[in-house]
């Protein structure tokens, strides 16, 4: 194998993600097969979409028969934080040549966290180190997903209530967001616009309406949002 040392370092660095992605991927795979979708649907999604929260949410889209335009807009806004990650690794990825498209594709929350917080060894060939780190992380996500999906299609048990894992995931992510920026205004905007949307439009349009109202709310409350930043 080329760049063996880069692989070894990447592997050691990625072990915490192995745990996280393995378990969460397993839950996702299980959810997919519990709703009678084929196991390989989970595999296809983890190869091509490769975004945790979005994949869980996708299960809801499938069930609600959400339109493609709504799926597109929702995806953009659910993952808009990733553009922020890209902004801060523009320089890091500059000299990565042919590997760059994959590095960008694989820029998940966890990969970004590892890329930006772990101190780098200057003897390493950077682009290969980044590549192995990104690819290892995705391989954990894919393995977890497939194992969960296969487990779900072989072992039959009562999965009633399993869909709560999605709610729990967003509760956890919301708390994490609060820790990063101790400002209650964005949550208030989210709560008010969600209630407005649920009360005024059919459930299938709820996300889009809540997102649009929130954008408006953000600019109206701009000062309150920026005060703490």
């Amino acid at each position: 194998m080329y760049y063996k040392r880069e692989f070894k370092t990447a592997f050691t660095t990625s072990i915490p993600v192995m745990m996280g992605y393995g378990v969460l991927g397993f839950a996702f795979g299980l959810l997919i097969t519990s709703l009678e979708y084929p196991w390989y649907l989970a595999l296809i999604m983890s190869i091509f979409i490769y975004a945790g929260a979005l994949q869980f949410l996708a299960v809801g889209f499938f069930g609600a028969k959400l339109g493609l335009f709504d799926i597109f807009i929702t995806t953009i806004f659910v993952n808009i934080r990733q553009s922020f990650y890209g902004l801060s690794v523009l320089k890091k990825f500059k000299k990565s040549g042919k590997l760059k498209p994959y590095l960008i594709f694989g820029l998940t929350d966890e990969t970004y966290a590892l890329l930006t917080t772990i101190k780098e060894d200057n003897r390493l060939n950077k682009k290969w180190y980044y590549f192995y780190l990104t690819a290892l992380n995705q391989s954990y996500w894919i393995s977890g997903t497939v194992l969960g999906a296969l487990f779900g299609s072989i072992v039959k048990f009562n999965t009633n209530g399993l869909e709560f894992s999605l709610t729990a995931l967003f509760v956890v992510l919301t708390i994490e967001q609060y820790k990063e920026n101790k400002n209650f205004t964005p949550f208030l905007i989210g709560i008010i616009t969600s209630i407005i949307a649920i009360v005024t439009v059919p459930i299938n349009n709820m996300l889009i309406v809540a997102i649009l109202c929130s954008l408006l709310g953000m600019f109206l409350l701009r000062k309150r949002l920026e005060n703490v930043n």
Binding site: I80, S83, T174, I189, I191, A210
Partner: peptide
């Protein structure tokens, strides 16, 4: 652009909690 990217994530996470409870 920076303003939206920075402030939207906590809003969308809150909305998604509600979205998962619509049923």
């Amino acid at each position: 652009v920076v303003f939206i990217e920075k402030n939207f994530p906590p809003i969308i996470m809150t909305i998604l909690i509600f979205y998962t409870l619509t049923s």
